[in-house]
Design a protein around this nucleic acid. Sequence first.
RNA 1: GCACCCGUAGCUCAGUGGAUUAGAGCAUUUGUCUUCGGAACAAAGGGUCGUACGUUCGAAUCGUACCGGGUGUACCA
Length: 542
Amino acid sequence: MNETIAEAVKKLFDQDVEVVMTRPDPQFGDWATNVALQLAKPLGRSPREIAEELASELRRIEDFAEVTVAGPGFINIRLNGTALLAAIREEPMATRKEQTIVIETNNPNPFKAMHIGHAFNAILGDTIANLLAVSGAHVHRVSYHGDVGLHVGKSMYSLLRYADGDFSRIEAIPEDERNTFMSKMYAEGSRAYKGDEAAKAEIQDLAEQSFEPKSALYIQIYDLCKAWSFEQIDRTVARLGNVPTERRFLESDADYRGVLTVQKHVPDVFQESDGALIFKGSEHGAFDNAFVSSNGRGLYAARDLGLMQLKDEQYHPDHSYIVTAEEQRDYFKGVIAAAELVWPDKKGVTVNISTGTVKLSTGKMSSRDGDVIEIAWLFDQFGEAIVGRGGEPTDAIVAGALRYQFLKVKIGSDVVFDIGEAVSLTGNTGSYLQYAHARARSILDKVTAQVQPLTEVKGEDRTLVRKLGEYHEVVDQASKLLEPHHICNYLFELAQEFNRYYEKNQVVGSDQEAHRAGLVMTYADTLKAGLAILGIHAPERM
RNA sequence: GCACCCGUAGCUCAGUGGAUUAGAGCAUUUGUCUUCGGAACAAAGGGUCGUACGUUCGAAUCGUACCGGGUGUACCA
Protein backbone atom coordinates (compact mmCIF):
# COMPACT_ATOMS: atom_id res chain seq x y z
CA MET A 1 0.00 0.00 0.00
CA ASN A 2 2.83 2.39 0.83
CA GLU A 3 4.27 1.70 -2.60
CA THR A 4 0.94 2.20 -4.33
CA ILE A 5 0.66 5.62 -2.77
CA ALA A 6 4.28 6.51 -3.43
CA GLU A 7 3.69 5.64 -7.08
CA ALA A 8 0.64 7.88 -7.23
CA VAL A 9 2.67 10.72 -5.72
CA LYS A 10 5.44 10.18 -8.24
CA LYS A 11 2.95 10.19 -11.08
CA LEU A 12 1.09 13.31 -10.01
CA PHE A 13 3.82 15.45 -8.47
CA ASP A 14 7.09 13.85 -9.57
CA GLN A 15 8.28 13.65 -5.97
CA ASP A 16 9.90 10.75 -4.11
CA VAL A 17 8.50 10.44 -0.62
CA GLU A 18 8.61 7.83 2.04
CA VAL A 19 4.97 7.14 2.71
CA VAL A 20 4.09 6.57 6.34
CA MET A 21 0.74 4.94 6.97
CA THR A 22 -0.95 5.14 10.35
CA ARG A 23 -4.04 3.59 11.85
CA PRO A 24 -6.53 6.36 12.52
CA ASP A 25 -9.61 6.18 14.68
CA PRO A 26 -11.90 3.65 12.95
CA GLN A 27 -14.54 6.32 12.33
CA PHE A 28 -12.10 8.03 9.94
CA GLY A 29 -10.96 4.98 8.03
CA ASP A 30 -8.67 1.96 8.06
CA TRP A 31 -5.51 3.78 7.12
CA ALA A 32 -4.34 7.36 7.06
CA THR A 33 -1.36 9.15 5.61
CA ASN A 34 0.08 12.61 5.95
CA VAL A 35 2.03 12.67 2.67
CA ALA A 36 0.17 15.76 1.56
CA LEU A 37 1.55 17.67 4.53
CA GLN A 38 5.03 16.44 3.72
CA LEU A 39 4.65 17.54 0.12
CA ALA A 40 3.33 21.01 0.92
CA LYS A 41 6.74 22.53 1.42
CA PRO A 42 8.66 21.12 -1.57
CA LEU A 43 5.71 21.81 -3.88
CA GLY A 44 4.93 25.20 -2.42
CA ARG A 45 1.22 24.47 -2.44
CA SER A 46 -1.45 24.10 0.18
CA PRO A 47 -1.51 20.61 1.73
CA ARG A 48 -5.28 20.45 1.51
CA GLU A 49 -5.15 21.03 -2.25
CA ILE A 50 -2.47 18.37 -2.72
CA ALA A 51 -4.49 15.95 -0.64
CA GLU A 52 -7.61 16.47 -2.73
CA GLU A 53 -5.71 15.87 -5.92
CA LEU A 54 -4.01 12.77 -4.58
CA ALA A 55 -7.27 11.45 -3.14
CA SER A 56 -9.03 11.52 -6.50
CA GLU A 57 -6.14 9.56 -7.97
CA LEU A 58 -6.30 7.02 -5.14
CA ARG A 59 -10.02 6.52 -5.58
CA ARG A 60 -9.24 4.66 -8.76
CA ILE A 61 -7.54 1.89 -6.82
CA GLU A 62 -9.80 -1.10 -6.46
CA ASP A 63 -8.89 -2.06 -2.89
CA PHE A 64 -9.85 1.37 -1.63
CA ALA A 65 -13.57 1.61 -0.99
CA GLU A 66 -13.41 5.19 0.15
CA VAL A 67 -10.77 7.92 0.16
CA THR A 68 -11.42 11.14 2.02
CA VAL A 69 -9.49 14.24 2.94
CA ALA A 70 -9.70 15.56 6.47
CA GLY A 71 -8.31 18.29 8.68
CA PRO A 72 -5.26 20.09 7.35
CA GLY A 73 -4.70 17.48 4.65
CA PHE A 74 -4.80 13.98 6.02
CA ILE A 75 -5.92 11.31 3.60
CA ASN A 76 -8.11 8.61 5.09
CA ILE A 77 -8.58 5.34 3.31
CA ARG A 78 -11.26 2.76 3.84
CA LEU A 79 -10.54 -0.67 2.40
CA ASN A 80 -13.04 -2.93 0.71
CA GLY A 81 -13.90 -6.38 2.05
CA THR A 82 -11.46 -8.22 -0.19
CA ALA A 83 -8.54 -6.13 1.02
CA LEU A 84 -9.58 -6.51 4.64
CA LEU A 85 -9.68 -10.29 4.32
CA ALA A 86 -6.36 -10.34 2.49
CA ALA A 87 -4.76 -8.61 5.49
CA ILE A 88 -5.86 -11.46 7.74
CA ARG A 89 -3.98 -13.94 5.61
CA GLU A 90 -0.71 -11.99 5.73
CA GLU A 91 2.15 -13.67 7.56
CA PRO A 92 4.64 -11.92 9.86
CA MET A 93 7.83 -10.92 8.04
CA ALA A 94 10.81 -13.27 8.15
CA THR A 95 13.35 -10.53 8.79
CA ARG A 96 15.79 -12.80 10.62
CA LYS A 97 15.55 -15.76 8.29
CA GLU A 98 19.24 -16.52 7.89
CA GLN A 99 20.22 -15.79 11.47
CA THR A 100 21.42 -18.06 14.23
CA ILE A 101 20.74 -16.57 17.62
CA VAL A 102 21.69 -17.63 21.13
CA ILE A 103 19.69 -16.26 24.02
CA GLU A 104 19.90 -16.78 27.75
CA THR A 105 16.38 -17.51 28.90
CA ASN A 106 17.14 -17.99 32.56
CA ASN A 107 20.12 -17.61 34.84
CA PRO A 108 19.29 -18.05 38.52
CA ASN A 109 22.28 -18.89 40.64
CA PRO A 110 22.40 -22.19 42.46
CA PHE A 111 22.59 -22.12 46.28
CA LYS A 112 19.89 -19.45 46.43
CA ALA A 113 16.11 -19.71 46.19
CA MET A 114 14.32 -18.57 43.06
CA HIS A 115 12.08 -15.62 43.58
CA ILE A 116 9.73 -13.44 41.61
CA GLY A 117 12.60 -11.53 39.99
CA HIS A 118 13.98 -14.74 38.49
CA ALA A 119 10.53 -15.56 37.14
CA PHE A 120 10.35 -12.12 35.54
CA ASN A 121 13.72 -12.52 33.87
CA ALA A 122 12.98 -16.07 32.68
CA ILE A 123 9.59 -15.14 31.23
CA LEU A 124 10.97 -12.12 29.42
CA GLY A 125 13.91 -14.08 28.01
CA ASP A 126 11.70 -16.91 26.82
CA THR A 127 9.22 -14.56 25.18
CA ILE A 128 11.95 -12.62 23.41
CA ALA A 129 13.23 -15.95 22.13
CA ASN A 130 9.74 -16.55 20.71
CA LEU A 131 9.74 -13.15 19.05
CA LEU A 132 13.10 -13.90 17.46
CA ALA A 133 11.80 -17.22 16.20
CA VAL A 134 8.67 -15.63 14.75
CA SER A 135 10.86 -13.51 12.49
CA GLY A 136 12.54 -16.65 11.19
CA ALA A 137 15.70 -16.88 13.30
CA HIS A 138 17.17 -20.19 14.32
CA VAL A 139 17.06 -19.73 18.09
CA HIS A 140 19.10 -21.57 20.72
CA ARG A 141 17.98 -21.13 24.31
CA VAL A 142 20.65 -21.51 26.95
CA SER A 143 21.03 -20.81 30.62
CA TYR A 144 24.00 -19.53 32.60
CA HIS A 145 24.58 -19.98 36.29
CA GLY A 146 27.02 -18.69 38.88
CA ASP A 147 28.29 -21.81 40.61
CA VAL A 148 31.51 -20.25 41.91
CA GLY A 149 32.41 -17.17 43.89
CA LEU A 150 31.50 -15.30 46.99
CA HIS A 151 27.81 -16.21 47.14
CA VAL A 152 28.79 -19.88 47.17
CA GLY A 153 31.15 -19.16 50.05
CA LYS A 154 28.32 -17.57 52.00
CA SER A 155 26.06 -20.58 51.52
CA MET A 156 28.80 -23.09 52.24
CA TYR A 157 29.60 -21.28 55.48
CA SER A 158 26.13 -22.00 56.88
CA LEU A 159 25.83 -25.39 55.22
CA LEU A 160 29.04 -26.67 56.79
CA ARG A 161 27.88 -25.40 60.17
CA TYR A 162 24.52 -27.09 59.69
CA ALA A 163 26.17 -30.37 58.69
CA ASP A 164 28.53 -30.16 61.64
CA GLY A 165 30.81 -32.70 60.03
CA ASP A 166 27.99 -35.06 59.08
CA PHE A 167 26.90 -35.06 55.44
CA SER A 168 23.79 -37.09 56.17
CA ARG A 169 22.30 -34.14 58.03
CA ILE A 170 22.15 -32.23 54.74
CA GLU A 171 20.94 -35.26 52.79
CA ALA A 172 18.07 -35.59 55.24
CA ILE A 173 16.40 -32.33 54.15
CA PRO A 174 13.07 -33.36 52.59
CA GLU A 175 12.52 -32.41 48.98
CA ASP A 176 9.78 -29.89 49.54
CA GLU A 177 11.84 -27.97 52.10
CA ARG A 178 15.04 -27.67 50.11
CA ASN A 179 14.26 -24.36 48.45
CA THR A 180 13.48 -22.65 51.73
CA PHE A 181 16.41 -24.36 53.41
CA MET A 182 18.93 -23.15 50.83
CA SER A 183 17.47 -19.71 50.94
CA LYS A 184 17.93 -19.65 54.71
CA MET A 185 21.48 -20.94 54.49
CA TYR A 186 22.40 -18.18 52.06
CA ALA A 187 20.76 -15.50 54.17
CA GLU A 188 22.63 -16.67 57.27
CA GLY A 189 25.92 -16.67 55.42
CA SER A 190 25.27 -13.18 54.15
CA ARG A 191 24.57 -11.96 57.65
CA ALA A 192 27.73 -13.58 58.99
CA TYR A 193 29.79 -12.00 56.23
CA LYS A 194 28.66 -8.55 57.27
CA GLY A 195 28.85 -9.40 60.94
CA ASP A 196 32.39 -10.13 61.94
CA GLU A 197 35.85 -10.27 60.44
CA ALA A 198 36.51 -13.91 61.36
CA ALA A 199 33.41 -15.10 59.52
CA LYS A 200 34.28 -12.88 56.60
CA ALA A 201 37.73 -14.43 56.28
CA GLU A 202 36.30 -17.91 56.53
CA ILE A 203 33.68 -17.17 53.87
CA GLN A 204 36.35 -15.81 51.57
CA ASP A 205 38.27 -19.03 51.98
CA LEU A 206 35.12 -21.06 51.31
CA ALA A 207 34.46 -18.97 48.21
CA GLU A 208 37.97 -19.79 47.08
CA GLN A 209 37.15 -23.46 47.61
CA SER A 210 34.32 -23.26 45.09
CA PHE A 211 37.19 -23.30 42.56
CA GLU A 212 39.46 -25.71 44.43
CA PRO A 213 37.79 -27.57 47.29
CA LYS A 214 39.97 -28.63 50.19
CA SER A 215 37.79 -31.26 51.84
CA ALA A 216 35.68 -34.23 50.84
CA LEU A 217 32.77 -32.89 52.87
CA TYR A 218 32.89 -29.60 50.98
CA ILE A 219 32.67 -31.46 47.70
CA GLN A 220 29.81 -33.65 48.90
CA ILE A 221 27.73 -30.73 50.11
CA TYR A 222 28.59 -28.53 47.16
CA ASP A 223 27.67 -31.17 44.61
CA LEU A 224 24.45 -32.16 46.31
CA CYS A 225 23.18 -28.63 46.83
CA LYS A 226 24.13 -27.63 43.31
CA ALA A 227 22.21 -30.60 41.94
CA TRP A 228 19.22 -29.71 44.13
CA SER A 229 19.35 -26.17 42.83
CA PHE A 230 19.34 -27.19 39.21
CA GLU A 231 16.46 -29.60 39.75
CA GLN A 232 14.59 -26.78 41.40
CA ILE A 233 15.46 -24.28 38.67
CA ASP A 234 14.50 -26.61 35.83
CA ARG A 235 11.23 -27.55 37.45
CA THR A 236 10.31 -23.98 38.20
CA VAL A 237 11.23 -22.64 34.80
CA ALA A 238 9.18 -25.38 33.16
CA ARG A 239 6.27 -24.53 35.40
CA LEU A 240 6.47 -20.93 34.21
CA GLY A 241 5.82 -22.16 30.70
CA ASN A 242 9.32 -21.64 29.33
CA VAL A 243 10.62 -23.74 26.47
CA PRO A 244 13.45 -25.90 27.88
CA THR A 245 16.98 -24.69 27.31
CA GLU A 246 19.37 -26.61 25.10
CA ARG A 247 22.40 -26.18 27.26
CA ARG A 248 23.37 -25.08 30.73
CA PHE A 249 26.53 -22.98 30.89
CA LEU A 250 28.36 -22.62 34.19
CA GLU A 251 30.65 -19.92 35.43
CA SER A 252 33.06 -22.61 36.54
CA ASP A 253 33.41 -23.63 32.87
CA ALA A 254 33.71 -20.10 31.57
CA ASP A 255 36.23 -18.94 34.14
CA TYR A 256 39.44 -20.44 32.77
CA ARG A 257 38.93 -19.25 29.21
CA GLY A 258 38.00 -15.81 30.38
CA VAL A 259 41.07 -15.40 32.52
CA LEU A 260 43.36 -16.60 29.72
CA THR A 261 41.77 -14.18 27.29
CA VAL A 262 42.24 -11.27 29.63
CA GLN A 263 45.86 -12.18 30.37
CA LYS A 264 46.59 -12.53 26.68
CA HIS A 265 45.33 -9.01 26.01
CA VAL A 266 47.42 -7.08 28.50
CA PRO A 267 48.23 -4.34 27.80
CA ASP A 268 46.46 -3.83 24.46
CA VAL A 269 42.95 -4.14 25.94
CA PHE A 270 43.36 -4.66 29.69
CA GLN A 271 45.72 -2.94 32.12
CA GLU A 272 47.25 -3.90 35.39
CA SER A 273 46.12 -1.75 38.29
CA ASP A 274 46.83 -2.47 41.95
CA GLY A 275 47.63 -6.03 40.97
CA ALA A 276 44.27 -6.59 39.26
CA LEU A 277 43.63 -6.71 35.52
CA ILE A 278 41.13 -4.06 34.64
CA PHE A 279 39.35 -2.68 31.60
CA LYS A 280 39.01 1.06 31.29
CA GLY A 281 35.29 1.05 30.58
CA SER A 282 35.15 4.74 31.39
CA GLU A 283 36.66 5.34 27.96
CA HIS A 284 33.73 3.45 26.40
CA GLY A 285 30.72 4.92 28.12
CA ALA A 286 30.85 2.43 30.99
CA PHE A 287 33.02 2.28 34.10
CA ASP A 288 36.47 0.90 34.90
CA ASN A 289 36.04 -2.66 36.00
CA ALA A 290 38.29 -5.43 37.28
CA PHE A 291 38.19 -8.62 35.20
CA VAL A 292 40.86 -10.56 37.10
CA SER A 293 41.41 -9.94 40.80
CA SER A 294 44.75 -9.12 42.40
CA ASN A 295 45.02 -12.72 43.61
CA GLY A 296 44.71 -13.94 40.02
CA ARG A 297 41.11 -15.13 40.31
CA GLY A 298 38.70 -14.59 37.43
CA LEU A 299 35.84 -12.26 38.22
CA TYR A 300 32.32 -12.10 36.82
CA ALA A 301 33.42 -9.99 33.85
CA ALA A 302 36.19 -12.38 32.82
CA ARG A 303 33.72 -15.25 32.96
CA ASP A 304 31.36 -13.37 30.68
CA LEU A 305 34.18 -13.22 28.14
CA GLY A 306 34.71 -16.95 28.60
CA LEU A 307 30.99 -17.53 28.12
CA MET A 308 31.06 -15.63 24.84
CA GLN A 309 33.73 -18.03 23.63
CA LEU A 310 31.77 -21.08 24.75
CA LYS A 311 28.68 -19.85 22.95
CA ASP A 312 30.65 -19.09 19.85
CA GLU A 313 32.33 -22.50 19.80
CA GLN A 314 29.05 -24.32 20.02
CA TYR A 315 26.67 -22.17 17.98
CA HIS A 316 28.63 -19.62 15.91
CA PRO A 317 25.76 -17.19 16.48
CA ASP A 318 25.06 -14.09 14.45
CA HIS A 319 23.66 -12.61 17.62
CA SER A 320 23.78 -13.45 21.27
CA TYR A 321 21.18 -11.89 23.54
CA ILE A 322 21.55 -11.45 27.26
CA VAL A 323 18.50 -10.26 29.14
CA THR A 324 19.28 -8.65 32.49
CA ALA A 325 17.97 -6.07 34.90
CA GLU A 326 18.93 -2.48 34.20
CA GLU A 327 21.42 -2.43 37.09
CA GLN A 328 23.72 -4.39 34.82
CA ARG A 329 23.41 -2.06 31.88
CA ASP A 330 26.71 -0.20 32.32
CA TYR A 331 28.44 -3.36 33.40
CA PHE A 332 27.54 -5.08 30.12
CA LYS A 333 28.39 -2.01 28.15
CA GLY A 334 31.91 -2.41 29.53
CA VAL A 335 32.14 -6.15 28.98
CA ILE A 336 30.85 -5.87 25.43
CA ALA A 337 33.24 -3.00 24.65
CA ALA A 338 36.14 -5.11 25.92
CA ALA A 339 34.96 -8.14 23.95
CA GLU A 340 34.76 -6.12 20.76
CA LEU A 341 38.37 -4.99 21.21
CA VAL A 342 39.49 -8.56 21.84
CA TRP A 343 37.46 -9.98 18.93
CA PRO A 344 36.93 -7.15 16.43
CA ASP A 345 35.30 -9.51 13.95
CA LYS A 346 32.50 -10.21 16.46
CA LYS A 347 31.46 -6.59 16.75
CA GLY A 348 27.73 -6.23 17.33
CA VAL A 349 27.15 -9.92 18.06
CA THR A 350 26.47 -9.70 21.78
CA VAL A 351 23.51 -7.57 22.79
CA ASN A 352 22.35 -6.82 26.30
CA ILE A 353 18.64 -6.17 26.70
CA SER A 354 17.93 -4.49 29.98
CA THR A 355 14.67 -4.95 31.79
CA GLY A 356 13.19 -3.15 34.73
CA THR A 357 12.85 -4.77 38.09
CA VAL A 358 9.92 -6.20 39.96
CA LYS A 359 8.85 -3.99 42.81
CA LEU A 360 6.36 -4.92 45.44
CA SER A 361 3.45 -2.57 45.94
CA THR A 362 3.24 -3.15 49.65
CA GLY A 363 5.52 -4.66 52.25
CA LYS A 364 2.62 -6.72 53.44
CA MET A 365 2.67 -9.35 50.75
CA SER A 366 6.16 -10.67 51.42
CA SER A 367 6.06 -14.40 51.82
CA ARG A 368 6.33 -15.52 55.39
CA ASP A 369 9.73 -14.64 56.83
CA GLY A 370 11.67 -13.31 53.85
CA ASP A 371 11.35 -10.06 51.97
CA VAL A 372 11.13 -11.90 48.67
CA ILE A 373 8.23 -13.57 46.95
CA GLU A 374 8.81 -17.19 46.19
CA ILE A 375 7.47 -18.55 42.95
CA ALA A 376 5.64 -21.49 44.52
CA TRP A 377 3.77 -19.06 46.75
CA LEU A 378 2.80 -17.03 43.69
CA PHE A 379 1.37 -20.11 42.02
CA ASP A 380 -0.67 -20.82 45.14
CA GLN A 381 -2.10 -17.31 45.19
CA PHE A 382 -3.14 -17.44 41.54
CA GLY A 383 -4.49 -20.93 42.08
CA GLU A 384 -6.72 -19.78 44.91
CA ALA A 385 -8.10 -16.94 42.82
CA ILE A 386 -8.89 -19.27 39.95
CA VAL A 387 -10.59 -21.76 42.25
CA GLY A 388 -12.58 -18.82 43.62
CA ARG A 389 -13.95 -18.32 40.11
CA GLY A 390 -14.84 -21.97 39.80
CA GLY A 391 -11.87 -22.78 37.57
CA GLU A 392 -9.24 -25.44 37.72
CA PRO A 393 -5.81 -23.99 38.47
CA THR A 394 -3.50 -26.02 36.29
CA ASP A 395 0.10 -24.80 36.02
CA ALA A 396 -0.51 -23.78 32.41
CA ILE A 397 -3.39 -21.53 33.40
CA VAL A 398 -1.60 -20.01 36.37
CA ALA A 399 1.58 -19.46 34.39
CA GLY A 400 -0.46 -17.75 31.68
CA ALA A 401 -1.88 -15.28 34.13
CA LEU A 402 1.54 -14.60 35.61
CA ARG A 403 3.32 -14.26 32.29
CA TYR A 404 0.79 -11.76 31.02
CA GLN A 405 1.19 -9.67 34.13
CA PHE A 406 4.91 -9.34 33.42
CA LEU A 407 4.70 -9.03 29.65
CA LYS A 408 2.03 -6.37 29.29
CA VAL A 409 4.36 -3.64 30.50
CA LYS A 410 6.88 -2.27 28.03
CA ILE A 411 10.20 -4.03 28.47
CA GLY A 412 12.62 -1.89 30.45
CA SER A 413 9.98 -0.47 32.76
CA ASP A 414 9.69 -1.61 36.32
CA VAL A 415 6.77 -3.84 37.18
CA VAL A 416 4.98 -2.86 40.33
CA PHE A 417 3.62 -6.14 41.48
CA ASP A 418 0.44 -6.13 43.45
CA ILE A 419 -0.70 -9.65 44.22
CA GLY A 420 -4.33 -8.60 44.57
CA GLU A 421 -4.38 -6.92 41.20
CA ALA A 422 -2.34 -9.64 39.52
CA VAL A 423 -4.74 -12.28 40.68
CA SER A 424 -7.90 -10.34 39.80
CA LEU A 425 -8.62 -12.24 36.54
CA THR A 426 -10.76 -9.38 35.15
CA GLY A 427 -9.89 -6.63 32.72
CA ASN A 428 -6.56 -6.59 30.95
CA THR A 429 -5.20 -9.88 32.25
CA GLY A 430 -3.97 -13.19 30.94
CA SER A 431 -6.98 -14.89 32.46
CA TYR A 432 -9.36 -12.68 30.48
CA LEU A 433 -7.66 -13.79 27.26
CA GLN A 434 -7.52 -17.44 28.20
CA TYR A 435 -11.16 -17.32 29.13
CA ALA A 436 -12.01 -15.52 25.90
CA HIS A 437 -10.34 -18.30 23.96
CA ALA A 438 -12.09 -21.08 25.87
CA ARG A 439 -15.39 -19.32 25.30
CA ALA A 440 -14.84 -19.03 21.56
CA ARG A 441 -13.94 -22.71 21.30
CA SER A 442 -17.03 -23.56 23.29
CA ILE A 443 -19.19 -21.70 20.78
CA LEU A 444 -17.56 -23.61 17.95
CA ASP A 445 -18.34 -26.88 19.72
CA LYS A 446 -22.01 -25.97 19.62
CA VAL A 447 -22.03 -25.02 15.96
CA THR A 448 -23.79 -27.63 13.86
CA ALA A 449 -23.44 -26.03 10.44
CA GLN A 450 -20.38 -26.57 8.25
CA VAL A 451 -17.99 -23.77 9.27
CA GLN A 452 -17.52 -21.44 6.33
CA PRO A 453 -14.10 -19.94 5.70
CA LEU A 454 -14.22 -16.15 5.56
CA THR A 455 -15.04 -14.99 2.08
CA GLU A 456 -17.11 -11.88 2.65
CA VAL A 457 -17.36 -9.08 5.14
CA LYS A 458 -20.81 -8.13 6.32
CA GLY A 459 -21.48 -4.78 7.90
CA GLU A 460 -21.49 -5.99 11.48
CA ASP A 461 -18.27 -7.97 10.92
CA ARG A 462 -16.23 -5.04 9.78
CA THR A 463 -14.51 -3.79 12.95
CA LEU A 464 -13.65 -7.31 14.04
CA VAL A 465 -12.31 -8.27 10.63
CA ARG A 466 -10.22 -5.14 10.50
CA LYS A 467 -8.77 -5.90 13.93
CA LEU A 468 -7.93 -9.45 12.87
CA GLY A 469 -6.06 -8.05 9.89
CA GLU A 470 -3.78 -6.06 12.18
CA TYR A 471 -2.31 -9.18 13.73
CA HIS A 472 0.67 -9.58 11.44
CA GLU A 473 1.60 -5.91 11.75
CA VAL A 474 1.59 -6.10 15.51
CA VAL A 475 3.71 -9.23 15.51
CA ASP A 476 6.17 -7.53 13.15
CA GLN A 477 6.43 -4.53 15.38
CA ALA A 478 6.87 -6.56 18.56
CA SER A 479 9.43 -8.76 16.87
CA LYS A 480 11.37 -5.90 15.33
CA LEU A 481 11.60 -3.99 18.59
CA LEU A 482 11.67 -7.14 20.76
CA GLU A 483 8.85 -5.68 22.82
CA PRO A 484 6.22 -8.26 23.81
CA HIS A 485 3.77 -5.75 25.27
CA HIS A 486 2.54 -4.75 21.80
CA ILE A 487 1.13 -8.24 21.43
CA CYS A 488 -0.53 -8.08 24.84
CA ASN A 489 -2.22 -4.79 24.02
CA TYR A 490 -3.39 -6.06 20.68
CA LEU A 491 -4.78 -9.36 21.96
CA PHE A 492 -6.67 -7.57 24.67
CA GLU A 493 -8.19 -5.15 22.16
CA LEU A 494 -9.00 -8.04 19.86
CA ALA A 495 -10.77 -9.94 22.61
CA GLN A 496 -12.72 -6.82 23.56
CA GLU A 497 -13.70 -6.35 19.94
CA PHE A 498 -14.90 -9.91 19.76
CA ASN A 499 -16.83 -9.68 22.99
CA ARG A 500 -18.65 -6.67 21.57
CA TYR A 501 -19.44 -8.57 18.40
CA TYR A 502 -20.57 -11.60 20.31
CA GLU A 503 -22.79 -9.51 22.54
CA LYS A 504 -24.79 -8.28 19.56
CA ASN A 505 -24.59 -11.11 17.06
CA GLN A 506 -25.94 -14.54 17.81
CA VAL A 507 -23.79 -17.25 16.29
CA VAL A 508 -25.25 -20.64 17.16
CA GLY A 509 -28.72 -21.08 15.75
CA SER A 510 -28.72 -17.92 13.65
CA ASP A 511 -29.39 -18.04 9.91
CA GLN A 512 -25.77 -16.92 9.47
CA GLU A 513 -24.30 -19.61 11.67
CA ALA A 514 -21.87 -20.99 9.09
CA HIS A 515 -20.49 -17.56 8.22
CA ARG A 516 -20.23 -16.31 11.77
CA ALA A 517 -18.64 -19.55 12.92
CA GLY A 518 -15.92 -18.91 10.35
CA LEU A 519 -15.28 -15.54 11.96
CA VAL A 520 -15.21 -17.05 15.44
CA MET A 521 -12.75 -19.66 14.30
CA THR A 522 -10.41 -17.12 12.74
CA TYR A 523 -10.61 -15.09 15.91
CA ALA A 524 -9.87 -18.06 18.17
CA ASP A 525 -6.94 -19.11 15.99
CA THR A 526 -5.51 -15.60 16.03
CA LEU A 527 -5.86 -15.37 19.78
CA LYS A 528 -4.18 -18.73 20.20
CA ALA A 529 -1.29 -17.81 17.90
CA GLY A 530 -0.69 -14.54 19.72
CA LEU A 531 -0.80 -16.17 23.13
CA ALA A 532 1.64 -18.80 21.89
CA ILE A 533 4.20 -16.08 21.16
CA LEU A 534 3.79 -14.93 24.73
CA GLY A 535 4.28 -18.50 25.90
CA ILE A 536 0.72 -18.58 27.22
CA HIS A 537 -1.38 -21.69 26.80
CA ALA A 538 -4.77 -21.13 25.19
CA PRO A 539 -7.09 -23.65 26.88
CA GLU A 540 -10.04 -25.26 25.10
CA ARG A 541 -12.00 -25.00 28.30
CA MET A 542 -11.34 -23.80 31.80
C1' G B 1 30.00 14.67 41.83
C1' C B 2 29.49 12.19 37.00
C1' A B 3 26.61 8.75 33.69
C1' C B 4 22.11 6.35 32.38
C1' C B 5 16.68 5.48 33.03
C1' C B 6 11.99 7.44 34.54
C1' G B 7 7.90 11.41 35.73
C1' U B 8 0.70 10.77 31.43
C1' A B 9 -6.47 10.02 35.40
C1' G B 10 -6.97 8.20 42.72
C1' C B 11 -3.82 3.45 41.43
C1' U B 12 -1.19 0.36 37.47
C1' C B 13 0.14 1.44 32.59
C1' A B 14 -0.28 2.28 26.79
C1' G B 15 0.58 6.23 23.39
C1' U B 16 6.98 9.00 21.70
C1' G B 17 5.98 14.39 15.78
C1' G B 18 0.12 15.13 13.69
C1' A B 19 -6.24 16.24 13.36
C1' U B 20 -12.75 17.18 16.90
C1' U B 21 -13.21 14.50 22.97
C1' A B 22 -4.65 12.35 25.17
C1' G B 23 -6.41 6.20 25.60
C1' A B 24 -6.91 1.27 28.44
C1' G B 25 -7.43 -1.72 32.97
C1' C B 26 -8.40 -1.32 38.25
C1' A B 27 -11.19 1.57 41.72
C1' U B 28 -16.00 4.82 42.01
C1' U B 29 -21.20 5.66 40.06
C1' U B 30 -25.02 3.80 36.74
C1' G B 31 -27.18 0.70 33.16
C1' U B 32 -27.72 -4.13 29.91
C1' C B 33 -29.01 -9.37 30.78
C1' U B 34 -34.52 -15.19 32.60
C1' U B 35 -25.89 -15.61 29.75
C1' C B 36 -24.34 -19.30 22.03
C1' G B 37 -19.64 -19.90 29.46
C1' G B 38 -21.20 -12.57 32.94
C1' A B 39 -13.79 -13.99 34.06
C1' A B 40 -18.95 -10.06 29.71
C1' C B 41 -21.03 -5.66 27.39
C1' A B 42 -22.75 -0.28 27.47
C1' A B 43 -22.13 4.46 29.84
C1' A B 44 -20.56 8.53 33.41
C1' G B 45 -17.21 11.22 36.42
C1' G B 46 -11.81 11.76 36.80
C1' G B 47 -5.87 14.55 33.24
C1' U B 48 -3.00 22.53 32.60
C1' C B 49 0.83 14.64 29.90
C1' G B 50 6.58 17.11 36.55
C1' U B 51 7.74 22.81 35.67
C1' A B 52 9.56 26.69 32.35
C1' C B 53 11.48 28.38 27.92
C1' G B 54 12.49 26.98 22.83
C1' U B 55 12.19 24.41 17.62
C1' U B 56 7.84 23.46 14.25
C1' C B 57 2.25 24.93 10.10
C1' G B 58 1.59 21.23 14.33
C1' A B 59 4.71 18.89 20.74
C1' A B 60 2.71 14.11 25.87
C1' U B 61 6.22 12.94 21.76
C1' C B 62 12.13 16.82 19.65
C1' G B 63 15.94 20.48 22.27
C1' U B 64 17.75 23.21 26.67
C1' A B 65 17.37 24.33 31.87
C1' C B 66 15.24 23.26 36.39
C1' C B 67 12.30 20.14 40.04
C1' G B 68 11.19 15.13 41.77
C1' G B 69 12.22 9.61 41.80
C1' G B 70 15.35 5.31 40.54
C1' U B 71 19.91 2.74 39.07
C1' G B 72 25.15 2.45 38.30
C1' U B 73 29.98 4.21 39.63
C1' A B 74 36.80 -1.96 39.50
C1' C B 75 39.07 -6.90 42.59
C1' C B 76 30.24 -9.17 44.66
C1' A B 77 27.38 -11.80 40.98
